[in-house]
Design a protein around this nucleic acid. Structure first.
Length: 392
DNA sequence: CGGCGGTACTG
DNA sequence: CAGTACC
DNA sequence: GCCG
């Protein structure tokens, strides 16, 4: 009973803290500084971003990884980078070394990067550019079920425009929906609309299970002014209630006419597993309000339902960012643990293969996960970039 | 030189 | 199983 | 791409 009560109480606190923190974060300096710095070095960041995108298209995940990390480092840099001394300062940052330094130097001296211009001329990249418009953050490669393998295949098949793909390509469900809502999904979601989506879902969920707790994670929880999608994390203080809960929620939201299409529905596999959780991914649209407010866009909505014991880990995972999660998990690994979206456990590895996972370590809050790993707590608004966690 | 997160869905 | 996705 |  105490555990259930504690979980529920904790979640309640978390809900309210999240809201309060979030509103402070936008108005306070955190995100502002970042935006300003991003503007300060806008040219450098956008060129490095194009490099990242190209390597993503080429399937070179590790260069993509390194460039994304580098973008974060440049964004965080406190002043405009214009001299060799500035670049020297950049080079002191872990994750930013000679080759990237040379590229940044070239950018501040010439305003452009030869290597990028060459890569853009590659026929395949040029074609991808044509039918995906990757240079304006309108990439089809990324979150519409199309990766570098598909791009390469389409190129070999001679497709060169979006209409080629529409007419000739054999698309899977995910890709069809991606095309159907092509413009909608490109549009960013303002914080206030994220909140309204959360409110709508919460209202419907409460009709089914009034004890449910619901937290919006992702970039929203990290304090961003706009999000690409809405990530809702749901739990229930009683673990038994988790089974089949998401199906009921999806049914309810369907009845309300809120869901327009589905990427993936809650699976019926692994229902017996202790660590079981459910995922829904799809498209939603807020109804017009009585006072005449009209919502223009359909939005990408992800809902995850986790059992209460996994809640702190789920919250940590679902808040991200992707690079933050990877750095924390990498550190946990070096410390002899494995950290996932549902548990932290000792892990024994042989030649980098996980061979045994010990008893999970119970944590009742995000803070506790950091504590067990011997790390200083990092607030959601500071989880936007890659970190180098060190042994203390 | 090898390693760079852990997991879950579709087809 | 490969490919892509989630953060 | 970078790090150990």
């Amino acid at each position: 009973f105490f555990f259930f009560f504690f979980s529920f109480f904790y979640i309640w606190i978390e809900n309210h803290e999240t809201k309060r923190d979030a509103s402070q974060e936008v108005s306070e300096h955190d995100s502002k500084i970042e935006d300003e710095s991003c503007d300060l070095n806008y040219n450098i960041v956008s060129i490095l971003q194009e490099m990242q995108r190209i390597y993503e298209l080429m399937g070179d995940n590790w260069r993509e990884f390194a460039y994304k990390r580098a973008c974060g480092i440049v964004k965080m840099f406190p002043k405009k980078i214009e001299t060799e001394a500035d670049v020297a300062l950049l080079l002191k940052t872990k994750g930013f070394s000679k080759k990237l330094g040379a590229k940044v130097l070239e950018i501040i001296q010439t305003g452009q990067l030869k290597k990028l211009n060459e890569l853009k001329k590659l026929p395949q990249i040029e074609a991808s550019n044509l039918f995906m418009g990757i240079w304006n953050q309108t990439s089809l490669c990324g979150n519409r079920g199309v990766g570098h393998q598909t791009v390469t295949q389409w190129y070999r098949l001679g497709y060169r425009t979006l209409d080629d793909v529409r007419e000739k390509a054999a698309l899977n469900e995910r890709q069809k929906i991606g095309l159907k809502y092509y413009d909608d999904l490109r549009a960013k979601i303002p914080r206030c609309e994220v909140e309204e989506i959360e409110h709508f879902v919460k209202k419907e969920v409460m009709k089914i299970e009034s004890e449910c707790a619901l937290v919006t994670c992702g970039s929203y929880r990290r304090g961003k002014a706009e999000s690409g999608d809405v990530d809702l994390l749901i739990t229930h203080p009683r673990a038994k209630k988790i089974v089949g809960l998401l199906e009921k929620i999806v049914d309810q939201l369907n009845k309300a006419g809120f869901l327009k299409d589905h990427f993936s529905l809650p699976s019926h596999k692994n229902k017996h597993a202790v660590d079981h959780h459910d995922t829904y991914m799809g498209i939603c649209k807020l109804p017009d309000t009585a006072d005449g407010r009209v919502y223009k866009y359909c939005r990408h909505l992800d809902i995850k339902v986790f059992p209460p014991a996994a809640f702190p880990f789920a919250l940590l995972y679902f808040t991200g960012s992707d690079h933050f999660n990877r750095s924390m998990r990498y550190f946990a690994k070096k410390k002899g643990y494995t950290l996932s979206s549902y548990q932290l456990a000792p892990a024994i590895r042989l030649n980098n293969h996980k061979t045994h996972t010990g008893q999970p370590i119970l944590c009742s809050s995000e803070e506790q996960v950091f504590e067990v790993l011997g790390l200083k707590y990092v607030k959601p608004c500071d989880r936007n970039n890659h970190e180098y966690f060190e042994f203390s």
